[in-house]
Structure formats: C-alpha cells, structure tokens
C-alpha cells in the first residue's frame, strides 16, 4: 500500500487524465469487438493481433518517411480488406457453429498472425515517432503527451462516424437487423453473408485505427496483442453488447481504476486489480439476474 497519491493530490489529476485517455483508446477496440460479437456471436481472440498488424502498417509508413499519424487513414482501409479476407477464408465456416468452435478458430488465427508478423517484421520492439510534443497543465505538474490526446480525439471521431454510419446507411441498417435476428433479416432479403463479411471488416478497420494510434503512443511487437484482446473483452463484458456510451464509459472507468490501483496497490497489482473488479462485476450481475428471475415467477 502506498499513499503517495493522497499526499500529493495533483497526482490524482494526472492519474485520472492518463486513465481517461488510455480508456478511450481501449474503448475503440472494445467497440469493434462488441459490434462483431453482437452481430456474429463470435468472440474474436485475434482482436489484439489485428490491432498490432494495424500498428505495423503505420510503422512502415513512418519508416517510408510519411508521418505515422496518417496511419489512422491508411491502416483502417488496409485492415478492412484483411478482415474481409479473413471472413471469406475462415470465419464464414464457423459463424453458425457454437462459441467454442469460433473461439478455437480465432485463437488459431491469433497464433498464425503472431508468427507471420514475427517472420515478416522481425521480433524487435519498434516505435514510431509522432513528435507531437507535450501539454503541460498546473504549472507543469501534470503532463499530457499530445500523442495520447491525439489518440483519444481520433478514437472519439471514429466511434462517432461509425454510430452515424450504423444509423444512416443501408448497410448499417442491415447490420443492425442481422444483429437482432439473422433469420428474419435473411427472410426479408438481407444478404447476411455480406453483412457478416462487412462487419468483420469494420471491426478489423477499427483495430487498424487503434493500432496506428498505439504505434505512436506505445510500442509494437508481434507478441503484445493479447493484452489488447483481454482488455477489450473485459470492457465488453462490463458494458454489454450494442451500447456505445456504456462501452466508452466502461473503457474510461477501467482506465482510471487501473491507474489508481497502480498508485495505491503498486504497479504489480494493477492488472490483478482490474481482473478482481471483473470478477466482482460478474458476480454482481449474476445476483441481479437471479433476482429478476425470482421476480418473474
């Protein structure tokens, strides 16, 4: 236990800001996961690998002399087709099967992607430099890297664009209809196959955006995808499917909770604390569910 954060209260501001900025970025990845989970009933274990792959696209733009921030435009376009291709080759075979089969399939994709990235990009840890500078607040006691602010703003923009697209466009309506009832949608003339392919593509594109942002805020390595999968999975579990504000809130909440547990419990417990919270929430949800059932009787 460490109470430094209470002795120096300005650290609370720093912790909250860091947590919120981090949480928004994670929420974007979680939003993609929630979307395709809701529509296709597939838990995508390869989510983190798609993020890292998107990051490498931005990194290679950086190596080619282009500012890595443009990765947020190029990476989702490339990743959309990667996702679409993955659906057409593998995912379509497991989309109507039970959850276990699809988890196995995406787990396989995850391992394969890791090894391929390792083979093609090498096992070095790499970073892309944005040179965005730093925002200093409170007499420079609180520092916010502009790259993180940029990441949060871009995440919000993409999330909002997606919400608009889902509400206004024909494909968006088809996706929502399929999510509600795939059979009924099919009867009413929705081509569910192409809806699934597009959904998987959109998810991969969101991962591409997040990956490009991670390339300029954190580090890239073929094997660091899993934490992103786990984090987005937790956000979705807490927020539920198909509820964007809840995903955003749960992302930020988890981010802030994680930062504070780092300061108070120690860095070694920050991830353990988040998992503990997940268990508590799941237990609480069961209780609530059990009460509802009783009420229905």
């Amino acid at each position: 236990m460490d109470f430094l954060i209470f002795q120096i209260p300005i650290l609370m501001v720093q912790a909250s800001m860091d947590g919120i900025l981090l949480g928004i970025l994670f929420a974007l990845i979680a939003y993609g996961m929630a979307l395709q989970w809701g529509v296709m009933n597939i838990i995508n274990i390869a989510q983190g690998e798609l993020v890292i792959l998107g990051g490498y696209i931005a990194y290679f733009m950086y190596m080619a002399g282009i500012h890595p921030a443009f990765g947020v435009i190029v990476s989702p376009i490339v990743m959309y087709f990667v996702g679409w291709g993955l659906y057409k080759t593998i995912i379509f075979r497991v989309v109507d099967r039970d959850l276990f089969i699809s988890i196995l399939a995406t787990f396989g994709i995850s391992i394969l992607t890791q090894q391929l990235m390792n083979f093609v990009f090498g096992s070095d840890v790499v970073v892309a430099q944005s040179n965005f500078g730093t925002t200093m607040l409170f007499n420079s006691m609180v520092t916010l890297p502009n790259s993180k602010i940029f990441a949060a703003v871009v995440s919000v923009i993409f999330a909002m664009l997606l919400v608009l697209y889902m509400r206004r466009s024909k494909l968006g309506r088809a996706i929502r209809a399929t999510a509600q009832n795939a059979r009924a949608a099919k009867i009413l003339g929705v081509d569910t196959e192409s809806v699934y392919a597009a959904t998987f593509g959109i998810n991969a594109a969101l991962c591409g955006v997040a990956g490009a942002l991670i390339a300029i805020t954190f580090t890239l390595h073929p094997y660091v995808g899993l934490p992103y999968t786990v984090r987005s999975f937790m956000i979705v579990i807490i927020a539920g499917l198909g509820n964007l504000p809840a995903v955003a809130l749960s992302g930020m909440g988890l981010g802030v909770f994680e930062e504070f547990s780092d300061y108070i419990l120690g860095t070694e417990f920050r991830i353990a604390a988040v998992f503990l919270l997940l268990v508590l929430i799941l237990v609480y949800r069961r209780f609530k569910l059990a009460r509802k059932r009783e009420y229905l009787k």
């Binding site: 650290l11 912790a15 006691m141 899993l226 930062e259 780092d262 860095t267 070694e268 920050r270």
Partner: peptide, 21 residues
C-alpha cells in the same frame, strides 16, 4: 520500487511518481 507486469507497456504512473518525488 515498482514491479512492472509483463504485459504492461505503460509506465506513466511510475514516471509521475518519479516526477513528484
């Protein structure tokens, strides 16, 4: 004396403490 979990790629909290102390 921070022990960083293996999957962590963010040291912001540690560095904020360093800055303060």
């Amino acid at each position: 004396d921070d022990k960083l979990p293996k999957e962590l790629n963010d040291m912001a909290a540690t560095l904020a403490k360093v800055k303060a102390t």
